[in-house]
Amino acid sequence: MSTTDVSTNDIVGAPVATTVEDVLSRFSGGNREDLIPILQAVQNSTGHLSRESVLAVARHLNLPPSKVYGVATFYNQFRFQPLGKYHIQVCRGTACHVKGSAAVLESLKRILKVEEGQTTKDKLFSLEVVACIGACGLAPVISINGEFHAGVAPDRVAGILNVYRRRAKNG
């Protein structure tokens, strides 16, 4: 990725405060092949792809909004809801899968009442599924704003979430 750096920010989920316009000004050529780098940079800056930003990208590249939205929804990396205060990444890599990450994910979905890519109504938690975060020795592992929780069993999920709820309450 030459023009934008999506590697670290994307995983930690802490958006850099810039606007869509700032991002678009960095891609002044209006080239269609910039579509995916632009979408990545927008998400990187604002945390997600809002309707307004998708429409702005479409205008910038003179592409129909349906096309931009189609491309964006094709890739798992793009999300369409703002991140929660705490961004949960559930590893679904091979080792975590073998160690039962599917049940952990189900448990998270049930407790938070969201699907992957969504954010809870109170905007506290957002849920993302990732392929492998390279901590196979800790499987099954989840990461919340970059803090790793190792060997998570489905019945521990509620407890972990409560830690963050309390943290949010206490500012």
Partner: peptide, 20 residues
């Protein structure tokens, strides 16, 4: 040249739909 609809999503989640 209207492109009101396009493929969205991927795999078993693919749908033809307008933007958003």
């Amino acid at each position: 040249s209207v492109a009101a609809i396009d493929f969205t999503g991927r795999g078993t989640d693919s749908r033809v739909a307008p933007a958003f």
